[in-house]
């Protein structure tokens, strides 16, 4: 527990950030929440995050473009896609582009926590999270 996991959360739905920020904070993550993808990208230029959680369909730059940008800029960053428009082709495309995981909305906070825990483990900075419910 040296340094908290840096997470950028991007979703144009305000409530998503509002709820997830404290939820993830509890498992030792420092979360920055954005609704506007342009602002989020600007922030990502300034700082390298451990994990980026992004919605896919947004006005302006969409999640897929964010994924491409992050993959290019910091390959070690794990990107988790969340979308209400989950489709088999979209999921496959996201994975091919190097997403760490793909979660369909609606999801429970624990679902995301489990994925973040796995990502943290993959990053070599495991966090405390009891993920009994979601298989690894």
């Amino acid at each position: 527990m040296s340094k908290p996991l840096e997470i950028l959360l991007l979703d144009d739905e305000v409530i998503v950030g509002k709820r997830l920020k404290p939820a993830l904070g509890k498992i030792g993550c420092a979360v920055e929440v954005f609704q506007d993808s342009a602002l989020a990208i600007k922030r990502m230029q300034e700082k390298e995050f451990d994990i980026v959680v992004t919605d896919i369909y947004m006005d302006g730059v969409d999640g897929m473009q964010v994924l491409d940008l992050v993959r290019k800029k910091s390959p070690r960053t794990k990107i988790i896609m969340i979308t209400g428009h989950a489709m088999i082709s979209l999921a496959r495309e996201a994975m091919e582009k190097g997403a760490f995981d793909f979660i369909a909305k609606p999801f429970k906070p624990d679902d995301l926590k489990a994925v973040i825990a796995r990502a943290a483990k993959a990053l070599g900075a495991p966090i405390q999270f009891d993920d009994k419910k979601v298989g690894g």
Partner: peptide, 13 residues
């Protein structure tokens, strides 16, 4: 071996 066929939370669910 393509990443697109990797299992993920969505497909596992």
């Amino acid at each position: 071996g393509y990443s697109r066929f990797t299992a993920m939370t969505y497909s596992k669910k």
